[in-house]
Design a binder for these strands. Structure first.
Lengths: 338, 338
DNA sequence: TCCTGGCACTCACCGGTCGTGAGTGCCAGC
DNA sequence: GCTGGCACTCACGACCGGTGAGTGCCAGGA
């Protein structure tokens, strides 16, 4: 088992390395942190920490840098979550309060996260499946062509065309619109299929085809939009990544462009509480030299989507975690209000 | 005036430099291109071209590289637009045909452009001001709360809440909906303000307040959405930019994050035909080492928005221009069909 | 007048050598 | 179990000379 002081040494190494980006040696450590022991003692501790795999040396006769395992221990046992200062909190709130619609909320959130953490920010749009239907609207575009609009409680709007097998009168349209809304308004998207399945039967023979088409399109919208969208920002922060450039950031940029990869990444994170994935803990190879800090957010108590940041494993974990958590809270509030 | 052969030499220099990314010397030039003259002659021509500012040497006793002015001459007088191969054309069409909605069209276009040109792609969403209104829908959410939905001919949907000064009956709602649509459906967004200004007067006194609120919101949507959105992709291609990394791509990434900058960039381009801005011709400082190739696209004969790519000044202009033009055409077709 | 071959010159690049210093491991003593 | 001392390692930067691609210039020929 690692003694208390060795953990302290590890913490000091992580902090110094995060600050300077350079391998940290025993002498510098004792000078910057008052550990109360000599460099020689620290050297012994370092040897032990290296033995256990928490730190490593890039070359013989260089200082040590933390390994993924070292960061993991640091995050789990040594680091708290650094709360934001109150001016920061106020700035967040003001900035988000000005948002005019859902797109704007998401866009502002991305900017905010990227600026606060000086890293790449990723924000998932509130998911359709977990949110509820506010309203379904049907419009007639042409005699045998309808438009279906679905509005969710998070302010998202989806729209689809429906080609009808037969002309559909205004009366029937109003009827269908009313019945559809009375069944699904306020209900969760995931419950919709069950709620509408017997709807065609209650219509005249001649209209059933059209009603079925509308329902099919509605359900299809549901399925398609389960592939969620997301927005990223702050990629310019990647340039502060390290010295050995292109090789590191190339795969990261590629991964960030693959929405599928990112969605999977966020999907793997815990639904509640904050998740930190460090280096090789990330399944995707391109992200092996990055850490991902993510957390769910939502309008009520329940998380409807996730947001987070992607940065070098050598990041300021307490600060990043604090910023991510705070932003998620405020976004949740904003969504609840609107 | 530059002789025919000197122009030929410039063309050869641009082509070789684009291919190899290395300064090109007189000997290599005569070997790769059958110019019919000796290296010594080419050297004289090069000296003249340098004198005129079309090429430069990074150091004494190195080959020459084209300057921005050299690329400009190349693009204007020496390079054609390389048409895509027919398999490429088919691939584009197939890929775009599968798009399900406007977001998807834009997203696919970005991917396509980025892949074809191996550069950063930028696609502007079809603009509301230049497109027409397909339908306006009004829904009652609560006794004194309405939702306004605007649907454009390019498939874009915008939605806003309206708080009414007084309760608004279903009959009045249907009435307003009908009158609103009869006036604006099929009209350009920019014409809407004039078309609706006298609408409140034709309603009962008690409803006028609400009608005015609805119209105000409608016009506000118009103004807000004149700030257009855009989508970018292919940023990973920036890693192929050059050897001297962070210093070059940092400002480019920053510029790309500023939608305002990009919109201005696209806005400065000609409305019809293709625009190529080379290096320092770009107003934004961060893009001084890049070239931007852009073109308008639209569903009819008229351009409703622009798309383009951002890449190093040392890019394959004929190929890039060909790809950009072809993609713009197909996107226009797709939009016209939907 | 324009092109060509020849020639001397420049200078970035590459590989090797060497001194410096931060950092280490080990050990004997407190 | 901590400490000071000591020998060792090795990345890094500076220096240096050889190599070769490339240049500018010039005199001679079509």
């Amino acid at each position: 088992m690692l003694s208390e002081r060795r953990l302290e040494v590890l913490r000091a190494i992580v902090q110094d390395y995060v600050g300077t980006e350079e391998p940290v040696g025993s002498k510098a450590l004792t000078e910057r942190h008052h550990l109360g022991v000599s460099p020689a003692t620290v050297r012994n501790d370092m040897a032990a920490l290296e033995e256990e795999g928490f730190i490593a040396q890039p070359h013989t006769s260089a200082g040590r840098i933390p390994t993924d395992k070292g960061y993991r221990l640091f995050v789990d046992r040594l680091a708290g979550v650094k709360p934001l200062s109150s001016p920061e909190r106020r700035a967040i709130q003001n900035f988000l309060d000005d948002a005019v619609d859902l797109d704007d909320v998401v866009a502002r959130t991305v900017r905010l996260l990227a600026q606060l953490t000086r890293q790449v920010a990723v924000v998932q749009y509130p998911s359709l499946t977990r949110s509820t239907v506010r309203h379904v609207e049907l419009l007639s575009l042409a005699p045998a062509r309808l438009m279906l609009v679905v509005i969710t409680d998070t302010g998202r709007v989806e729209q689809r065309h429906v080609d009808c097998p037969a002309p559909f009168g205004e009366t029937s349209l109003a009827d269908l619109r009313a019945r559809l809304n009375s069944r699904v308004a306020g209900r969760r998207f995931s419950d919709v299929p069950l709620l509408v399945q017997d709807l065609p039967e209650s219509f005249e023979q001649e209209d059933r085809g059209t009603v079925s088409s509308v329902l099919a399109t509605l359900l299809e919208t549901l399925v398609e939009e389960t592939e969620e969208r997301l927005m990223i920002g702050g990629t310019a922060n990647l340039t502060r990544f390290g010295h050995d450039f292109p090789l590191v950031i190339r795969p990261v940029l590629e991964a960030l462009e693959e929405q599928v990869v990112l969605l999977k990444l966020l999907g793997e994170a815990k639904d509640s509480g904050m998740t930190v994935r460090i280096g090789h803990e990330n399944a995707h190879e391109g992200l092996n030299s990055t850490s991902v800090v993510s957390v769910g957010y939502g309008s009520g108590g329940e998380a409807v989507a996730k947001l987070g940041v992607v940065g070098p494993t050598r990041m300021d974990y307490p600060g990043t975690m604090g910023a991510v958590r705070a932003v998620a809270r405020y976004v949740g509030q904003i969504l609840a209000e609107s």
